[in-house]
Design a protein around this nucleic acid. Structure first.
Length: 729
RNA sequence: GCGCGAUUAGCUCAGUUGGUAGAGCAACUCAUUUACACUGAGAAGGUCGGGGGUUCAAGUCCCUCAUCGCGCACCA
């Protein structure tokens, strides 16, 4: 029998739909997401230590997926915890224009409309994608709110904001002045579908089984899986120590019959040849191969382009000119066979080809005159701080992975031939190709040869701007925010982008600010479906976080994402699990209902000190519990705390303590009743506080109902302390 | 080829510095005007991938093998 005058909401099961938006508005209206407001309103002390987390800027090209759901959950949990611990807590939200990613999404949209980006004038295309992005942005921001994110919207940044672009430009200029960025002819990976180059990270290696050809090249046999690149090969290379070819000398010319007639080839002896591989002899194609390029560069050999940017053969291919390499290969082999130049064909040669990670097109190495950052000097500084353990990796094996990558780092191609992005502020000489950074648009002649110049039409690799995110968003160098909140405390993001993003932030942060950008890196794994499969639209197993929050409530979704999810490990998301936590939210609801109905005429007193022995035992147990989970929270072991608090509430508090209270309330002495009532409310209020970072909505709602004096919003209440200080030690 | 992980209950995963294996979900047996069926009580389920070593003691440390996953390189 329920007492008539308890909050009528409690008489029905917990209804997330009725609650969540209302609670979020309460929080947002309070202004407490903003640490300055917390300070102004006396929520935190004036000398409170800062705690800063910069949100990985969300790609503004779609809607929130399960991975975002995880990011928002973990980060909001961290931030709410720190806020309750009295830190001057800033969680700065942001959006990423996500250059190439967004352009690909938009191109697919265009394709459906029967258009292509190559038919659209640059400025118009830019405007269209901008509109598309802005539309998505507001959508995404709504979804981030739905997840309960307590980020400071007043400080929100977008990668294309003027202030960010300005910082990015200054960084580029500084790199240029320090001779750390150069424009040069280098091999890049070129996607003929997307018509842009990539850095070495945006590449997907794919195993292929293809024929492998052994071709007669004068007195030699060379082997290749790509005969279509061989038209211009006029250097034949072998190892200087290779006995088999001892009779040939470096620089020697030989005449031989090749695909389109007789040619003169030059013998090159080079240490970089693997004698064990194939016949130990190869011809080189410097324009379309990394290794060949390196040899040609070092030996000063001529380079010639064979394949154009669309994957078609150039005039050097003679009768094959203009044909696409895909079609040409067979025809070329046919011709070689007719000429008796094919020695043998290995039909099932297994090798790995580099493909575009978005469209699967085989990437063609091409020599391009583009901007590259010299990474070695930047990487060395990063390695130094990492080896000094000045950045903590959670889990720590990511440190090893990072060190390995940094030790073998390659120069970073930051030029992208796409419209959607931050334009590279540079002029290029029409005569000598020299590149000059020109922030004020004042360079009119080449500084090297006095030739005429043109504006660089390329945009920056999107990771170049996001790599500067921690200091760029905080208004480096003179803003108060930068002084207060940098270096940030933690970078929480997907393990997947450890190189793309995290490592580059460390390098650029150190380079520009001289300080590490964050003290800790917390890396979460992928979110997989219940069967442990990667979610993808084509498999049809994508789980939309908003469908789950709609069905089970955001709190259930959030704690379901946390429990059992260790950092760095991928998480299988099952609906059963989320449903279980929906029941938990309702359990809390009913616990509150029971406590309020059975203690209705008790006035809760936070400083109640007449507990009888029975309660003192429970308090000491609770105290131990609080101190252990507080330590685990500080160690970022949320997966354990989530499980423990669940277990404490349900199996201990509800099933045992509340059950035995029924007897006390029925037959106990007034002292026993009073003692127990105080304990129940006190414990409930502590549970709500501990649970708040995990399940912010239901806990805030219950907090508003329970009889505690001088209540603030739960989100700014203090995290409970263990009553017995000695337990803490 | 080099590197990094993983292998524990049917499934998903915990297991902190070595001290006789834990949780959720699922399945099983009971209970049923109970704060809560979005429930309660109970039971079941594991030679911790194989082998070897260190130790009084190993899921945990060392070596080795196997399988799976990922990254990097090579890919003439």
């Amino acid at each position: 029998m329920i007492e008539p005058n308890i909050d009528p909401k409690l008489l029905k099961p917990y209804d997330p739909k009725e609650t969540e938006d209302r609670i979020y508005k309460l929080w947002e209206d309070s202004g407490y997401f903003n640490p300055d407001v917390c300070l102004e309103k006396g929520i935190i002390n004036s000398d409170a230590e800062a705690f800063t987390l910069i949100m990985p800027p969300t790609n503004a090209n779609g809607s929130l997926h399960a991975g975002h759901g995880l990011v928002m959950t973990i980060e909001d949990l961290i931030v709410r915890y720190k806020r309750m611990r009295g830190f001057k807590t800033l969680w700065l939200p942001g959006l990423d224009h996500a250059g190439f990613e967004t352009q690909v999404v938009y191109e697919r949209k265009l394709e459906k409309e029967g258009r292509t980006r190559f038919d659209i004038e640059r400025n118009q295309l830019y405007q269209e994608i901008l509109d598309f992005t802005l539309l998505n942005s507001s959508n995404i921001k709504g979804q981030v709110r739905k997840m309960g994110a307590s980020c400071d919207w007043s400080r929100e940044k977008f990668t294309l904001d003027d202030s960010i672009v300005k910082t990015v430009y200054q960084t580029f200029k500084k790199l240029y002045d320090d001779d750390l960025v150069y424009r040069g002819n280098r091999i890049v990976s070129w996607c003929s579908k997307h018509q842009t180059s990539f850095s070495d990270l945006e590449i997907k290696d794919e195993e292929r089984i293809e024929p492998y050809y052994y071709l007669k090249y004068g007195p030699f046999t060379i082997s290749t899986s790509r005969p279509e690149t061989k038209f211009g090969d006029k250097y034949v290379v072998m190892h200087p120590k290779d006995e088999r070819y001892a009779e040939y000398i470096d620089g020697q010319k030989i005449d031989l019959e090749w695909i389109n007639g007789p040619i003169t080839a030059t013998i090159i002896k080079d240490e970089n040849i693997d004698m064990e591989f194939g016949t130990g002899v190869m011809t080189i194609t410097p324009w379309h191969d990394n290794v060949d390029f390196e040899i040609a560069e070092r030996r000063g050999l001529e380079k010639e382009q064979i394949i154009d940017e669309n994957g078609k053969l150039l005039p050097i291919a003679g009768e094959f000119a203009g044909q696409h390499i895909k079609k040409a290969r067979g025809l070329i082999i046919e011709k070689l066979q007719n000429k008796g130049l094919v020695e043998k064909v290995e039909e099932n040669y297994k090798h790995v080809v580099r493909t575009c990670y978005k469209c699967g097109t085989i990437l063609e190495p091409q020599i391009k005159n583009q901007w590259f950052i010299k990474m070695k000097p930047l990487a060395e500084k990063a390695l130094e701080v990492i080896n000094q353990n000045r950045i903590e990796y959670i889990p720590d094996h990511y440190k090893k992975i990072t060190v390995h990558w940094l030790e073998n780092i390659m120069d970073w191609n930051i030029s992208r031939q796409i419209v959607w992005g931050i334009p590279i502020p540079a002029k290029i000489c029409n005569d000598c190709g020299h590149g000059m950074v020109d922030l004020d648009n004042t360079i009119l002649k080449c500084k090297k040869c006095n030739g005429s110049v043109r504006v660089d039409q390329d945009t920056f690799d999107t990771w170049f701007s996001s790599g500067q995110w921690p200091f760029a968003t905080l208004g480096y160098p003179d803003s108060n925010d930068f002084k207060t909140f940098y270096p940030t405390d933690i970078m929480e993001t997907a393990g997947e982008i450890i190189f793309f993003w995290v490592s580059r932030m460390i390098m650029l942060g150190l380079y520009i600010t001289g300080e590490i950008p964050f003290k800790k890196v917390y890396l979460h794994g992928l979110v997989l479906d219940a069967k442990g499969q990667k979610m993808s639209k084509s498999k049809g197993n994508v789980i939309d976080p908003l469908t789950l929050t709609e069905k089970y409530g955001t709190d259930a979704f959030r704690i379901g994402m946390i429990v059992g999810n260790t950092p760095g490990t991928s998480l299988s998301l099952s609906e059963d699990k989320i449903r279980a936590y929906k029941n938990y939210a309702n359990k809390l609801w009913n616990i509150t209902r029971f406590i309020l109905s059975s203690t209705e005429n008790v006035i809760y007193n936070e400083n109640f000190n007449k507990y009888i022995e029975k309660e003192n035992v429970l308090i000491s147990e609770r105290s131990e519990f609080i101190s252990s989970i507080t330590k685990e929270m500080d160690d970022y072991k949320f997966y354990i705390v989530g499980e423990k608090i669940y277990h404490y509430t349900w199996s201990r508090f509800a099933d045992v303590i509340i059950e035995e209270s029924k007897e006390i309330f029925l037959n106990g002495t007034p002292e026993e009743k009073e003692s127990r009532a105080q304990f129940l409310i006190d414990t409930l209020s502590k549970i709500l506080k501990i649970l708040h970072p995990f399940m912010p909505f239901v806990t805030e709602e219950l907090w508003s109902i329970i009889p505690v004096d001088n209540k603030k919003l739960l989100m700014v209440e203090k995290w409970p302390k263990a009553e017995k200080p000695e337990v803490l030690s």
